[in-house]
């Protein structure tokens, strides 16, 4: 099972620095989500990892660069395009073509077709496929060599809800088998259910890297709501341990500390607590907070700036 190590990845298009000194590790047995706003460099990073784009840095798969792998599809399965196939080459033939140079037999081709649910259209021409069917064919290609590593760029694009659930279960299952799964997605709720670790980038730079729970818990949007008859004394005690305190509807909202720290501080000060409720930020909130200043493409209409009149 492969450890993916990306080191100092960089890419410049003209005057635009698309990827800037990105380094991260994807560990076997985990699904690592790759998040970033549109144009933040996710797809470019994935192409750099596979040697498809020329740039700086190196990515190794158990110490070997992708271009150094013998029969690469047996090691790394990749999905990088929405419809990476000739529209008139039959779906099964498309997979047979990719399988041929990797020493993969036709039986495995039929297996992955069955696995992704395209058995009924295996002889069909992909030009007539829906986006979701095209994605399934792309996923089949990625799975063709039964690889220990998967790199998938927006694999859930075009999938229906059943398809998204199927994909989530599949990727989780593959990770549980000890494989490394690196997947980008715009569907943050889906990523919250799927990913164990996150790599979050903005404008090509690393914003966060680590377990999903850490990313969310570090968000300043997480808070603890406190009700107490001793608020007057409690607020200074909390501020003394680094919390920010704001009054809210008969209580206070505390940020920057955990509920346990609030309880401990109250206990130490001999103060009574009537309610202690934790509000954890969602992945979406944490993501928006982390990438708020890193949007490559920013619309002019913002509801908070007077959109509702």
């Amino acid at each position: 099972m492969a450890l993916i190590e990306a080191r100092s990845l960089g890419k410049t298009f003209g005057a635009h620095r698309a990827v800037d000194d990105l380094s991260f590790t994807v560990r076997p047995g985990s699904v690592t989500g790759f998040l970033g706003p549109n144009g933040s460099g996710k797809s470019t990073t994935m192409r750099l990892m596979l040697g498809l784009d020329r740039g700086e840095g190196i990515t190794t798969f158990d110490g070997v660069p992708f271009t150094g792998l013998d029969h690469p599809m047996r090691h790394v399965g990749a999905l990088l395009e929405a419809k990476p196939f000739h529209p008139t080459r039959k779906a099964r033939n498309h997979l047979r073509m990719l399988a041929a140079p990797n020493g993969i037999d036709d039986r495995r081709v039929d297996e992955v077709i069955d696995m992704v649910g395209l058995t009924g259209v295996r002889g069909g021409r992909p030009g007539k496929f829906s986006l979701g069917m095209g994605q399934r064919l792309g996923i089949a290609a990625a799975l063709l060599g039964d690889p220990h590593t998967l790199i998938l760029d927006e694999p859930s694009n075009g999938l229906d809800p059943q398809g998204i659930t199927w994909l989530r279960n599949l990727l989780k299952h593959l990770a549980q088998q000890g494989r490394s799964v690196f997947v980008s997605s715009h569907l943050l709720q889906e990523m919250a259910l799927l990913a164990d670790e996150l790599v979050v980038i903005g404008r090509g730079r690393m914003l966060a890297n680590g377990p999903v729970h850490d990313f969310i818990s570090h968000s300043s949007l997480g808070s603890v709501t406190v009700r107490s008859p001793d608020l007057g004394a409690l607020a200074p005690a909390l501020e003394a341990i680094g919390a920010s305190v704001a009054a809210a509807d008969g209580g206070i909202v505390v940020r920057g500390v955990t509920a346990e720290q609030v309880g401990d501080a109250a206990h130490a000060a001999g103060l009574r607590l009537h309610q202690l409720a934790t509000h954890e930020a969602t992945l979406e909130e944490a993501f928006l907070e982390a990438t708020g200043l890193s949007e490559e493409f920013r619309g002019t209409h913002r509801p908070s700036e007077g959109g509702q009149r």
Binding site: L50, L52, L69, P72, M73, E81, P84, F85, H86
Partner: peptide, 18 residues
Amino acid sequence: GHEYRHGMIRATLTAIPH
């Protein structure tokens, strides 16, 4: 031409990186 017209080139180079 097919490689570029139909976006096959990346699939091709992930099957044969050389």
